[in-house]
């Protein structure tokens, strides 16, 4: 609804433009195309070189491949142990999403709808925690994880990812939960529902867009994260696909056909997901803000 109104407004604006204004658009398209090529051509190099033999990259570094040979992908999958990498990534991503939903969901519910003391102070505390740099706690955390036996385990990494995602997720979910009318849960309580039932049966179905955004940001983060993954995991068997890709690319330097093929396999799920749910991606990443 609001997008329609928005489009209509934009359209009238352009049509009311004085003729001199419209004459400027060819320059806009020129600049936009140059920027578009700058963004897209490198991605194209990744893809086309994944189809070449390593000999062909030497003679034809950036051009189109002579044939659409898929054997690089099969070889990269096998040599890079990508099945194992994706299994580890799945544990990390799913664990992080579910954990963040549980920890951030309950806390946001309490902040938004329950009789929690010191609400204001807790919110301010969360803002401070969000802006805390990772370097402020990574060193003691590493040695604490050594002591607790959580180093070099996927569970240990999931706990860290959940803790990193929770503060911003609490604040985001809170804004969704505050907007739901109080009459709804009071009616459910009169019908004999307890707090947990109110939260999961009444409130959760009404606030799912917030949970979807939080899940997307947390899942994407776990898929791509590097610093904690390379620091807290030691054995290559435990590494998620992005981190083991780094090892693979260092082991096969200059075999660009093979390494690029592995790269394409890793990137495909992200691109497909993005094309399916663009709006939520952009909203979520803008809200979380600091991936740069």
């Amino acid at each position: 609804m609001s997008t329609l109104a928005f489009r209509a407004r934009r359209r009238t604006r352009t049509e009311e433009r004085p003729p001199g204004g419209l004459g400027r658009t060819p320059y806009s398209y020129l600049v936009l195309t140059v920027l578009g090529l700058f963004a897209f051509l490198p991605v194209l190099v990744l893809i086309v070189n994944a189809f070449k033999t390593s000999l062909e990259i030497g003679t034809n570094p950036l051009g189109l491949p002579s044939s659409l040979d898929l054997s690089n992908f099969a070889e990269a999958w096998r040599k890079g142990n990508m099945a194992r990498g994706f299994a580890n990534t799945a544990v990390l991503v799913l664990g992080t999403i579910v954990g963040t939903w549980l920890f951030a969901g309950t806390a946001a519910y309490s902040l938004a709808r329950l009789n929690l003391p010191l609400k204001r102070a807790i919110e301010n505390y969360l803002f401070v925690i969000i802006s805390l740099p990772v370097q402020m706690f990574i060193v003691p955390l590493f040695f604490l994880w050594v002591k607790l036996g959580l180093i070099n385990t996927l569970v240990g990494l999931v706990v860290i990812y959940v803790a990193l995602n929770t503060p911003f997720s609490v604040l985001l979910l809170r804004t969704f939960l505050v907007g739901i009318p109080r009459e709804l849960d009071e009616a459910a309580r009169i019908d004999g529902a307890n707090e947990w039932q109110v939260a999961t049966r009444v409130i959760l179905p009404l606030s799912w867009p917030g949970f979807a955004t939080v899940g997307l940001v947390a899942g994407l983060g776990a898929y791509s994260e590097l610093l904690f993954a390379v620091t807290f995991l030691i054995d290559v068997e435990k590494m998620p696909v992005a981190t083991s890709f780094l090892q693979f690319s260092q082991g096969f330097t200059q075999l660009y056909n093979l390494v690029n093929a592995a790269g394409v396999i890793i990137v495909i799920p992200l691109i497909v997901l993005f094309l399916l749910m663009q709006r939520r991606f952009i909203a979520g990443l803008a809200a979380s803000g600091t991936k740069g």
């Binding site: 329950l114 929690l116 807790i122 706690f137």
Partner: peptide, 26 residues
């Protein structure tokens, strides 16, 4: 109040373990 605290406690405890505790000890 107790119910509200019970809902908020897991997140705060996790935060203390992973972020706030190590940050202060650093």
């Amino acid at each position: 109040r107790l119910i509200a605290i019970a809902f908020a406690l897991p997140a705060l405890a996790l935060n203390l373990l992973v972020i706030a505790g190590p940050a202060v000890s650093s």
